[in-house]
């Protein structure tokens, strides 16, 4: 029996999902649905846009206005939707490769504009759909099918990247920390401006297996034991934080002019002239 949340927010006919056993994406998709539900948003006015990759299959399962687009361009499509009808709540579900490699340009420019989109990254540190190639968030030294001797690439830290580009809301959550991550997504959706929530997923099939991280349970246990909430992390020394991951909200600036609202003002100004 599906839970009430699943009944109310998912296309049951399309379930079960295609993600591998132990994949973190299902938990994160549920977090997004829970966040929308907690906010009491009108389902008619919620749009989910996704790109291509494991993460982006989420759009097909979620019972809203859903647009499954091309690889890397979900944020650009979402920008068009939000600009055309600012009254819609537009949420982008994307992956680490989709959002920060092929789609990196759109990510930074949407952040720069401060357009009211919520970008939820299911970050599994690998290209899963194509079978385990390294992505911009694959830790240096990790193994992947295209890094058979260990990756020499340096990585993107997505919230830092987004903040550098001007994002007015940036946070990190994790698959294990369901209530905290749901709240971070919820706050990101409620935020009037560009919001990015980098969600640590787990990919036992490719990232885990290639890097001897153990099975899904072991990978989730790692998150349980090594993820530190930001409030706690703020009290810790760099040495104490070595090897840990920090989740929480890194920036929330609510009073920065939002792009579509500014354009609406421009239209009003021309009407008066």
């Amino acid at each position: 029996m599906a839970s009430e949340l699943i009944n109310n927010t998912m296309r049951l006919r399309n379930l079960p999902h295609i993600w591998c056993p132990g994949c973190g994406n299902g938990i994160l998709m549920r977090d997004v649905a829970q966040a929308i539900t907690n906010l009491g948003l009108d389902r008619d006015k919620v749009v989910i846009v996704s790109g291509i990759g494991c993460s982006s299959r989420a759009a097909g399962y979620m019972n809203y206005n859903t647009l499954h687009t091309t690889h890397g361009r979900a944020i650009a499509f979402a920008t068009g939707i939000k600009m055309a009808k600012p009254e819609l709540t537009v949420i982008v579900i994307t992956g680490d490769g989709d959002s920060s490699a092929i789609g990196g340009n759109h990510l930074i420019h949407a952040a720069r504009r401060n357009i009211d989109l919520t970008v939820v990254v299911f970050n599994n540190n690998i290209y899963g759909m194509t079978g385990g190639q390294f992505s911009p968030t694959t830790p240096t030294g990790s193994f992947a099918t295209t890094a058979p001797y260990g990756s020499i690439d340096r990585t993107f830290d997505l919230p830092t990247l987004a903040m550098g580009a001007g994002a007015t809301y940036a946070a990190r959550g994790s698959a294990y920390h369901v209530p905290q991550t749901t709240k971070l997504i919820q706050d990101g959706i409620a935020h009037k401006g560009f919001a990015l929530i980098d969600c640590m997923a787990v990919c036992p099939t490719y990232y885990g297996r290639k890097n001897k991280k153990g099975d899904a349970v072991k990978m989730m246990t790692w998150q349980k034991d090594n993820v530190v909430l930001k409030a706690k992390a703020d009290t810790m020394t760099p040495e104490e934080l070595e090897g840990k991951a920090v989740i929480g909200c890194f920036r929330n600036e609510p009073n920065v002019p939002e792009y579509t609202a500014e354009y609406t003002k421009l239209i009003e100004r021309l009407k008066k002239a």
Binding site: V49, F77, T79, G80, A84, N105, H106, H109, I267
Partner: peptide, 21 residues
Amino acid sequence: RFLQMEDEISGAAAAIGASVA
């Protein structure tokens, strides 16, 4: 509404997005 996008690809994507709306 007019949008100057960051590149040609996103220009097409945003136009399609607006049409969806």
